[in-house]
């Protein structure tokens, strides 16, 4: 592709160097996660390191029937609905806002840069701000009020940026064609625009879900007395010294992978349907 010398399909040496770099990077990326996966099946000798002795599922059992670990199930029962609510709100809010930004309006730049600022402000700063705000309002912090808001302030800018990219590529003549064919504004949105940008909306949903599900700094002060899952894990890192921690890591990673798989395969399904017919 970028080879300067005459080549008959043979690759330049840089390809091999970079391919090696890439392979090492992938090992670097996934290796530790694999280590955790393997060690979560550690036997009762309860060592936190290799080698794996007497593989068993006991640490998974420990997770769901806690004796020494914290309230993992309870934390999961808060994290999952919170992530789902953040996901739905992120899609709704960033898609509608994305449409507004296709037109010029007064204050657009201000709102845009506020969103960007919300993206880059350190999570801890926002956490403090939210908790102080709630104190002044006389409200107590809770995962489904202040926690939800803190997560949205982080997920929404991401969603907005994705919608910018998606809508930037949406050819305005689709909407004009719909208008030309007698569709009302609402019909145009429902029948033409939403179906076309649907893959982008799935991407926004994926971001909304995982940013909330895995968020730590913004949850730290804002979820109140009941922990979400990442906070529970954090607590466990300091006081649990059994492979139950790894078992928990394996379980949350599997859930993350499930969510990613659902999102990516639905995007792939839509794209394939469009390029190959029903």
């Amino acid at each position: 592709m970028s080879s300067a010398s005459p080549s008959y399909g043979s690759r330049p040496w840089t390809f091999y160097v970079l391919a090696l770099l890439f392979t090492l990077f992938v090992i670097f990326l996934y290796g530790p996660m694999l280590a955790v996966l393997v060690l979560s099946f550690q036997g009762p000798s309860a060592s936190l390191v290799f080698p794996l002795r007497d593989p068993s599922l006991m640490w998974f059992d420990e997770l769901f029937n806690p004796r020494r670990t914290g309230d993992v199930v309870g934390a999961f029962n808060r994290s999952l609905p919170l992530a789902l609510v953040v996901m739905v709100l992120t899609v709704l809010i960033s898609v509608t806002a994305g449409f507004a930004f296709r037109r010029r309006f007064k204050g657009a730049t201000l709102i845009f840069y506020t969103a960007i600022a919300s993206l880059i402000v350190p999570g801890l700063v926002l956490s403090i701000g939210t908790i102080v705000t709630f104190r002044y309002l006389g409200l107590s912090a809770s995962w489904n009020t202040s926690g939800l808001g803190a997560h949205l302030s982080w997920a929404l800018p991401f969603g907005l940026l994705i919608m910018f990219a998606v809508l930037g590529r949406l050819n305005p003549s689709y909407e004009e064609a719909a208008y030309d064919l007698g569709a009302s504004k609402w019909q145009t949105v429902k029948e033409v625009v939403v179906p076309i940008v649907f893959p982008g909306m799935i991407a926004v949903a994926l971001f909304g879900f995982t940013l909330s599900y895995d968020e730590f700094p913004r949850s730290w002060l804002t979820v109140g007395s009941k922990n979400t899952l990442p906070l529970e894990i954090w607590t466990m890192t300091t006081n649990v010294t059994s492979p139950a921690l790894y078992a928990l890591g394996t379980v949350t990673t599997i859930i993350s992978f499930l969510v990613i798989a659902i999102a990516l395969s639905s995007i792939l399904f839509i794209q394939r349907k469009r390029s190959r017919g029903k």
Binding site: N171, S173, D180, I270, R274
Partner: peptide
């Protein structure tokens, strides 16, 4: 457009991809 009795064929055709 529909009340005008016009119909437009777009340069890119604008066929709905979905």
């Amino acid at each position: 457009p529909v009340e005008r009795g016009t119909a437009m064929m777009f340069q890119s055709y604008a066929l709905f991809p979905h």
